[in-house]
C-alpha cells in the first residue's frame, strides 16, 4: 500500500477531521472518531484505526498539533487541536470542495433537464 494511492481518502478524511476540530475544539482520537460517526448519522462506517495515520499526516503537514492530556474518564490521551495554518487550509479546502461539488451538481441538473 503506497501512501499516494490513499491521498484522496486521507484528503477527504483529513478535511472532515479538520472541520470537526474547528467545530468542536481540541479533541482526542476516540472523540474525533465518534464525532465523525455521529455527524454522518452513522452513515460513514469509519474504520476507527485509519484515523491515526490521517492524524499523523495532518500533524506532519502542520495543520493540527497534538499534546498529551487526559480524557473525561481520566485516561492519558493525545489531544489534537487545529493550528492557524490548519484553519487557513480549511478555508481553502472548503472553498475548493464547494466549487467542486457545485460543478458536479450543475452537471447532474443538466442531465436531469436533458432526460
Amino acid at each position: 500500500m503506497t501512501p499516494d494511492k490513499n491521498d484522496v481518502l486521507y484528503g477527504t478524511l483529513g478535511l472532515i477531521v479538520i472541520k470537526t476540530l474547528e467545530a468542536m475544539g481540541p479533541l482526542h482520537g476516540y472523540r474525533i472518531a465518534r464525532r465523525i460517526e455521529q455527524i454522518s448519522g452513522n452513515q460513514l462506517a469509519l474504520n476507527q484505526g485509519t484515523l491515526y495515520p490521517a492524524l499523523i499526516k495532518l500533524e506532519q503537514m502542520g495543520w493540527i498539533s497534538s499534546k498529551w492530556g487526559t480524557s473525561e474518564s481520566g485516561r492519558r490521551v493525545k489531544i489534537y487541536a487545529l493550528t492557524r495554518a490548519g484553519r487557513k487550509e480549511l478555508q481553502k479546502a472548503e472553498a475548493q470542495w464547494q466549487r467542486a461539488t457545485s460543478i458536479v451538481e450543475r452537471f447532474l441538473k443538466i442531465s436531469e433537464n436533458v432526460s
Partner: peptide, 15 residues
Amino acid sequence: FGGVTQARQIHRQVR
C-alpha cells in the same frame, strides 16, 4: 477500530 496491526503498520508508513 479495524485491524490494530494494520493501523500501526500504515501509521509507520505514512509518518
